[in-house]
């Protein structure tokens, strides 16, 4: 564990806490893409298949459980909670995320560390996580002004993988046989997708104006 990865994990956890705060405090999920939340739930379920077989550390196990439980709870809440689901922007959240699922799985069959069930699902979760934010970014562009908590949620979600890139660079230079090409390249793509969001987020922060993504 290094400071970059720990900071990344804390940002990831913060993004989830901000999203939970928004949904439970405002009893609303307006501006949140259910499709992105469904993709994230799949990412964690596919990545943490080894939850009960490979014990890395207490921290690792607890964080995996937190990510799985929180992501599935958010999906459940947006679909089933009578109050919350009324505020879901169904007509705006129309990104065809099944293509992202199919493309990620097809790529995982072709490019993986080892052609085993667990490694294919691990690579699938890495590729899927890289594109999972797309429905959310499209929804933000369509829904015009973005409320603060939603903006902060997306910001921390994007920042976490940027810190993971620093973590991979650090590990590359400090560990002998360290190579995570699949995660690293996918992480670069993932962070690049946030580039324009980060730009408009910075502008809104600098000018102290409402965050607005151009359509």
């Amino acid at each position: 564990m290094n400071i970059f990865r720990f900071a990344g994990d804390m940002m990831h956890l913060t993004s989830i806490l901000v999203l939970l705060l928004k949904i439970y405090a405002t009893k609303s999920c307006s501006g949140i893409s259910l499709k992105t939340q469904e993709l994230y739930a799949l990412v964690f379920l596919a990545r943490y298949l080894d939850l009960f077989t490979d014990f890395i550390s207490v921290y690792n196990t607890i964080m995996k459980l937190v990510f799985i439980v929180s992501s599935t709870a958010i999906v459940w809440c947006m679909k089933r909670d009578r109050v919350v689901r009324r505020s879901y922007d169904k007509q705006l959240d129309t990104f065809r995320h099944y293509f992202l699922l199919a493309a990620s799985f097809a790529l995982a069959l072709l490019v993986n560390e080892k052609f085993t069930f667990q490694e294919i699902f691990w690579a699938f979760s890495i590729y899927l996580e890289a594109v999972a934010i797309l429905p959310q970014l499209v929804l933000l562009q369509r829904s015009g002004n973005v409320d603060n908590l939603t903006g902060q949620y997306v910001f921390f979600l994007g920042a976490y993988r940027a810190f993971y890139i620093l973590n991979w660079i650090y590990r590359y230079f400090t560990e002998t046989h360290f190579s995570r090409w699949i995660a690293c390249i996918s992480g670069l793509v993932q962070t690049a997708l946030y580039a324009d969001f980060f730009y408009y987020y910075y502008i809104s922060w600098k000018n102290n104006t409402k965050l607005k993504l151009p359509a």
């Binding site: 990865r5 994990d9 080894d50 490979d54 890395i56 690792n60 964080m63 560390e113 691990w122 973590n167």
Partner: peptide
């Protein structure tokens, strides 16, 4: 072969 703690990251 992948050493067993290969996926030690979240």
């Amino acid at each position: 072969d992948l050493d067993d703690d290969y996926h030690d990251e979240l």
